[in-house]
């Protein structure tokens, strides 16, 4: 595809948007995975919120996290 004499500028714009958005997505996904692992490790040790009854740790909600 011929983008004319300013092809470099056009491609630089699209590259900048791609890089920043991809960075945001990767950061959010990695952060989510790290937190889910931390939460799973805590729950595996039997640690529940003070407000939660034993054996009542919102299994549905946690399963979706």
């Amino acid at each position: 595809m011929d983008l004319g004499p300013h092809a470099g500028v056009i491609l630089a714009c699209y590259a900048a948007v791609t890089l920043v958005i991809a960075g945001l997505i990767l950061w959010l996904v990695a952060d989510g995975r790290r937190l889910a692992l931390q939460l799973a490790a805590l729950e595996e040790r039997g640690i529940r919120r003070r407000s939660a009854k034993s054996g009542d740790a919102e299994p549905e909600a946690n399963a979706r996290i």
Binding site: L24, I25, L28, V29, D31, G32, L35, A36, Q38, L39, L42, E43, R45, I47, R48, R49, R50, I65
Partner: peptide, 22 residues
């Protein structure tokens, strides 16, 4: 992005609360 970031933040707060219990 916003929904995912909000979910992460809620997870972070839950991890923090459980860490305090620990």
């Amino acid at each position: 992005l916003h929904l995912k970031a909000m979910r992460n933040e809620l997870l972070r707060r839950r991890v923090k609360a459980l860490t305090l219990v620990a």
